[in-house]
Design a protein around this nucleic acid. Structure first.
Lengths: 299, 299
DNA sequence: TCATTTGATAGAATTTTTCTATCAATATCC
DNA sequence: GGATATTGATAGAAAAATTCTATCAAATGA
């Protein structure tokens, strides 16, 4: 029964019988039969079919919702019993928005010191992807904006506030300023993340609110790419202050990281985890770690 | 998997492999094998054995806790999907303390008017039994004291306050009084519930607090027995006011129902249901009904 | 001591699950 | 428009699991 619910979960993720089957490690007929059995057990069609997957019926959506909960609880149960015997062991899957990736270390390092047998997989994701994958049990926790879009059913722990700096060449325009306004920033050609990233949308909104049309010369979904460009001192960018610091950009001789004021914009970044009580032991320990370090990061 | 968890649940209830198997509708070797499989899957012993059932291990208790949740959610899922197709159908299992049994009707009657296809099973139970059976998913809801003993993980809806009346023969002592004190009540020979009932303990505490030794001439765990005795007018009793009214005792020519004051004692009675979100549709509808009628009953 | 209770075990029968192979229907591409 | 690819259903065989009956050994208790 629980395995059938996992089939349904996979089908919801992949929206494709074949790929869902592969994800579950069974053949496609097995998965098809499993879904059929669920439908027979409930006496209701769960999936709209027509030579291919066409989404779930209303009943299917409800069952999917329950399946998430039941499968999640089952995994948590297994993990908890395992932890009772072997201590905290396993793999924690965390997704973070690109600008928060460099901050993941502040969580994982003390976590690992406490629980040396836990392994990590960290994904770079957009904020909306994080919430979707949290729902689907594809990740255990996320690091994302807490105060912008609706979060849904999650536990959240505020970690720090994202404030913005203009990164420019030490010999470039504005380089001698102690602070700059968003209006001034809007005049400079910038390297930013692509528009599917919330960080980009936040910065772009701030720039547009000055009434001007910003010049986004280069955009990418990869922080490494932005980093390598900015580091040359030949490209300018707007980055969260903390990120610039942890990338070492503020110590560069060729760069200046100038606080941007007017308006002094900031957004809260925090840890999000499924709002299930009790959580899996691995996730609970991560949330505990977050609550522990939050006072050191928040101002 | 889920069926194995049901085995474990039954074993927790019955504390006996054979009876648990019977309760699950399987043979004893099947249930034994099921539990063994769970133990193998977790790699941990769940049950302390020694020629007979000797309770659960620490890990077993944790798994039992999860099993309650997972099995409960699975049932809720089935019920919800069924309700989507056929409307609210099924059987609602409610337990009530004896003194609240007569009040069950105020819930079931409007419920049935709204959902004519729902059937009911009502059990008479002590308050502690109600909480235990709620935990074990043996009942869907209970009607019991809300403000005395700790309730545990439940949703509760206060319904009414229990106040006490002395029932005496119209030609007996105290019969002409508009109100009596507990001290006066303590002088009268009484018929009460047995001491395993919280109502008896409450009344006995109130009587003892007067400093005297009450005379409990007759006790029974059956309200019908108390009712038949009291109705003759030859026996006295202390009963919740509402109960006396709904049994018609206050309209009797041979009886007087006299408010007891000093102290004016009262205890809240309410509906309790498992604190699971979301609840099964049947239970959710019952809680909704309770919230609807509560304002009409509470003062 | 002897009968009873309790749960484990063995072996057979049955049911369920899963796989491979194939098909029909639709979508896509040239 | 017709060839090709994709998608999910279906049939039948093989494999795995579940469940039953029958029996046993240990512990209990009268």
């Amino acid at each position: 029964m629980i395995e059938k619910l996992e089939f349904l979960l996979a089908l919801g993720r992949e929206r494709h019988f074949g790929r869902a089957a592969e994800a579950c490690g069974v053949t496609q007929p097995t998965l098809s039969a499993g879904v059929k059995q669920l439908e027979a057990a409930f006496g209701v069609l769960l999936v709209n079919r027509g030579s291919r997957f066409q989404g779930f019926t209303a009943e299917g959506e409800r069952v999917l919702d329950w399946a998430r909960r039941i499968v999640g609880d089952t995994r948590a149960m297994r993990q908890e019993v395992h932890a009772l015997k072997h201590g905290l062991v396993g793999r924690l899957r965390i997704a973070a928005i690109p600008t928060a990736l460099a901050m993941v270390e502040t969580l994982t390092t003390p976590y690992r010191a406490r629980h040396p047998n836990v392994q990590f997989t960290i994904y770079s994701r957009t904020s909306t992807e994080i919430l979707a994958e949290l729902e689907n049990l594809e990740i255990d926790a996320g690091l994302t904006y807490l105060d912008n879009e609706p979060l849904g059913r999650v536990t959240s722990v505020p970690l720090y506030r994202e404030r913005y700096r203009l990164l420019v060449a030490a010999d470039g325009p504005l380089a001698d300023r102690a602070a700059v306004t968003w209006l001034e920033v809007a005049q400079v050609p910038l390297c930013l993340l692509t528009p599917d990233m919330q960080n980009r949308r936040i910065i772009e909104r701030l720039l547009r609110e000055t009434g001007t049309d910003p010049n986004i010369t280069l955009e990418s979904d990869s922080m490494v790419l932005l980093y390598s460009h900015v580091r040359t001192g030949r490209w300018a960018s707007v980055m969260p202050a903390r990120l610039a610091v942890s990338l070492g950009l503020t110590e560069s001789n060729t760069l200046r990281a100038i606080p941007i004021v007017e308006p002094e914009a900031s957004h809260t970044i925090g840890l999000v985890a499924p709002a299930r009580e009790p959580m899996t032991p691995l996730t609970a320990a991560l949330v505990a770690e977050a609550r522990r370090i939050a006072p050191l990061l928040m101002d």
